[in-house]
Write a protein that binds this DNA or RNA. Structure first.
Lengths: 121, 121
DNA sequence: CTTGACCTTGACCCTGGGGGCAGGGTTTAG
DNA sequence: CTAAACCCTGCCCCCAGGGTCAAGGTCAAG
């Protein structure tokens, strides 16, 4: 199958597929005319990458998941490296939520302060 | 004063100062040799920009605050436009926290699922 | 055989807030 | 006089692609 079919079937853009390839996540063969040729397995890979990116992982961080698939597993997340990646991402999210929560407090304080200053003048 | 002095006094890098200028937040005069020349007021502006960026505003969003300062106010955040910008940023942070909280749940579910699958095999 | 619609290719510029580096000119202290 | 420290502009890099382009390939209908 060609890149447009793959993209449509996996629910991403052609541009995204080419980007994944540039990141080393796909290695399609080429037809005689230079067109990229994909297997049915590549659809699974692209869907997985899409799902992982939407969880906030970087393209690079999806690597262990794809390797897990390529190793013959039905699921990309049953390998130890995948579990580690999940845990790392959860920790990252927790850190980010804590940061934003602090920031929220700071902003609210600043707003209150600025409002009070105005009514006092 | 020159760019290095300004940067040191405001606690940012020379590169950052030039970037702020490229975003229209500073308009230094030039010495005969082409060096940028800053006023003492510019230190205040740069400090303000730095503080606002650390609150997650974009350089563009700092614009109303700088205008407020230039209008002669002692504080950059006492103008109506500044209050609006604060409120917008708070709403943004709230949205982001909500997103991350949902994401956290998804990730934890996926992790649990993958772990269980492993112990079951 | 040709036309037109659609597909694919690689290549370029853009995002935000700068960091890093190159290759120059200027100034200041010793 | 020279070396260090400063300043200038301009270019490439990040991340996950989006937008646009010119050029060429494919496939059906007429």
């Amino acid at each position: 199958m060609r890149i447009g079919d793959l993209a449509a079937e996996a629910g991403v853009t052609v541009k995204a597929v080419r980007y994944y390839e540039s990141q080393g996540l796909l290695k399609p063969r080429r037809e005689a005319n230079g067109y990229r040729a994909y297997s049915a397995e590549d659809v699974i890979v692209v869907r997985e990458v899409k799902a992982l990116l939407s969880l906030g992982l970087t393209a690079e961080q999806t690597y262990p998941f794809i390797e897990c698939l390529r190793a013959g597993n039905d699921r990309a997340d049953v390998c130890p490296a995948s579990l580690t990646a999940y845990r790392a991402r959860i920790a990252e999210v927790d850190r980010r939520i804590a940061e934003l929560t602090e920031l929220r407090i700071k902003l609210a304080d600043l707003l209150t302060d600025a409002e009070n200053w105005r009514t006092q003048r």
